[in-house]
Design a protein around this nucleic acid. Structure first.
Lengths: 224, 224
DNA sequence: CTGCCTCTCATTGTCAACAATCTTGCGCTG
DNA sequence: CAGCGCAAGATTGTTGACAATGAGAGGCAG
């Protein structure tokens, strides 16, 4: 039953939010075509509302409009992925800087330490899945601690091409140590209130990650 | 007559582009409400298409949707303007860095020098309007020289709140010298192929501008 | 005169029907 | 058997009509 769901918002915005969530969570694959009629039926609304949701998401950069073909989840070429990687580098660097500039509450400091501890635990345990999950949570937390919702929004957008991009297993295993060493530097800099150091460390860290992404095989980018 | 116009594109995208142009050029004021029916009539299309154009522009950050009230040209609060200013700082810094990293063609180098020369001329002539215009052209040129269309796109968005923000006259007059001194440092760094210097100089330059913006009187933000 | 209530109208929200377009599968021809 | 149309089906593009909402005008009571 779908009754225990919090009674979904069926306005165009609500539908846009639902679709955005599906894209971000990987429910829809890159390049996947979305059919107006199917979604209209699924949500129990007219096609017009779905179309308006599509248009919003197109404006936000999540979807790609093709005349007379409708929309598909926006794909990114290798070049685009690299270009956006550089943008991500400075934006995440900014978030780290801002987090270090602010006077964090005790609760926030504890959250940051806890997030770091969970990554450390996953690293020690050699649990790559857990590490990946905690890694994402850590980056999101820093965005939040930056206190700049606009920076956050742009970072979310610039991260879209990375959804569903799966690194080769051995490469991940090999990079965990280096990656988490970066995290520890960032965490320390933020807790110490050292904006410059936090930004530099985060930029280096993100750049490292991007270098791995740039080496991905071609197949990743043509994913239907 | 409107016959010599290039036969306007009346798709939702075309209408969105037309409206975007009006907002950017100041044809519509901040907070101004746009009426679906009026625009539908003006363009000679159904309301649906205008609505879809509205939705796209909402996603892009140009318009603001209010349930059952329609759309208005989006206003940004002082806090938002400051937050986006910091994002702009790092993004424009990135563009300058990328421009310096690339090997520019002779034509590109000449364009950059010419843009700098035009600003210098406007500064010497004390023509504030010309300086403002050339200043915008200069920043756009650097985005272009960065060769990163995504960085460009984000910069465009993050600049939206600055549309129509008019600085007090004397303050502009007073800051032209300092501003253009910044430009010269940036120009030199890019031509010299010094990414680090170019980025630092651009960030400082943008931050200076933001400081002025932050001091704007309250009226600017409630302006409808 | 002031404040509140109601009614009216302008405007947005929604849909279902119809038109235009693209894809695809089939059959014909060379 | 390959290639070329052609027709049928699926999907998007567009509109006009009707419902729902909210703002403002006007009147009535205190």
């Amino acid at each position: 039953m779908a009754d225990d769901m919090p009674k979904q918002d069926l306005s165009s915005e609500g539908i846009a939010a639902a679709l955005r969530g599906r894209i971000l969570s990987g429910g829809y694959g890159l390049g996947q075509r979305l059919i107006e009629m199917d979604l209209a039926e699924e949500f129990g609304v007219g096609r017009g509302r779905v179309r308006e949701a599509f248009r919003m998401l197109t404006g936000e950069g999540y979807l790609e409009f093709v005349a007379n073909r409708g929309v598909l989840v926006r794909r990114y070429s290798r070049v685009e992925l690299i270009e956006m990687g550089r943008v991500r580098e400075v934006l995440e660097g900014l978030a780290a800087r801002l987090a270090a500039e602010r006077t964090l509450t005790d609760v926030q400091r504890q959250e940051l330490e806890a997030a770091q501890a969970r990554m450390d635990a996953a690293e020690v345990a050699g649990d790559l899945d857990a590490f990946g999950m905690e890694n994402r949570a850590y980056h999101r937390l820093i965005e939040e601690l930056s206190g700049n919702v606009h920076a956050s929004e742009f970072i979310t957008r610039v991260r879209i091409p990375l959804i569903r991009v799966q690194m080769p297993w051995e490469e991940v295993a090999e990079s965990v140590g280096r990656s988490n060493r970066g995290h520890r530097v960032i965490t320390a800099a933020i807790l110490a209130g050292a904006p410059e150091a936090a930004e530099v460390a985060m930029r280096t860290h993100v750049r490292d990650g991007n270098a791995h992404v740039a080496r991905l095989p071609d197949e990743v980018f043509e994913a239907r």
